[in-house]
Design a protein around this nucleic acid. Structure first.
Lengths: 151, 151
DNA sequence: TATTATTGCATAGCGTGCTATGCAATAGGT
DNA sequence: ACCTATTGCATAGCACGCTATGCAATAATA
């Protein structure tokens, strides 16, 4: 029996994530935000002045990825980076007024995308679906963080 | 109530897909394949000599994305593109012996990644999970393909 | 048949993810 | 105090997704 993509969790996850990203991208268009910028803003709206290291930990992306995202956000006038008062290696990331003003429109866009994507599922099914994704994510994170057979 | 990423299907889908991609990438390393190359090979192992247009339709990616993936695959000696006998605009994509020889190792790698990712779910839960993803994908595809308010 | 529209593909440019690497600042060990 | 480790970040290079655009071949139409 050949490998069947329609029964492959990874294949479906990739396809689904691409569709989510496209939909969100389109809905975020009026705000001028890109998807990774929105993800980062979610953290900063919640707590301003985080360091790059904290953002990396919260969002589970690589440090280099976050450095580039922050550079684009600074270019676009969404954040400013200021030296950390206690550690000259580190910087704190602070929102601009512009970024603070985009919160409602952006979260509305994301909520709309989620609502529409899950439109075909009952309330119970939606809960089950989120819970299953959280469990699969946790499994893969543990797997990743346990090299088990390090050289 | 603030937007909560842990209850956002899109956020979870993105995180999950990144973890799947990383895991698959690592397992595919011995074969030298990249993830999009593997996805494309899945189609060609099943039916050789497809056109770029057919690959685009089967994998639901943009034409330009597939053109670049095929260029990298040709560079890596996985496929050759030959003119279509009936339409000079089109090309057929043919596997090399090298690509044919990678089938088992690559599909084993993907199966292992899927197995480990779903390790924490019961057999029933795995079926439910796949079915829910398929439904959400279908919902978003329909949404995307219905511009509804075209200009 | 000549003109126009469509189709199939390539290329450019960019966002977002990764690994690998380098550098400056801090922390630790002698 | 010095030397070495580690830590925080930036940069380079690449894969892979997207949109926008251009070109050549085919199809459709007047």
């Amino acid at each position: 029996m050949a490998f069947d993509k329609k029964n492959s969790a990874g294949y479906l996850a990739n396809h689904m994530a691409r569709l989510f990203a496209l939909g969100l991208q389109k809905r975020l268009n009026p705000t001028g935000l890109a998807t990774a910028q929105f993800m980062t803003l979610l953290e900063l709206w919640n707590k301003d002045g985080l360091t790059q290291k904290q953002l990396v930990a919260n969002l589970d992306v690589e440090q280099a990825t976050m450095a580039n995202t922050l550079a684009r956000m600074e270019r676009d006038g969404l954040v400013r980076r200021r030296p950390h008062p206690a550690d000259a290696r580190s910087q704190q990331v602070w929102l601009t007024a512009k970024a603070r003003g985009l919160r409602e429109a952006a979260t509305d866009a994301a909520s709309a995308q989620n609502r529409i994507a899950l439109n075909g599922l009952s309330g119970d099914e939606q809960e089950v679906f989120l819970a299953l994704m959280r469990r699969v994510i946790e499994t893969m994170r543990e797997q990743r963080d346990q090299p088990s057979d390090a050289d």
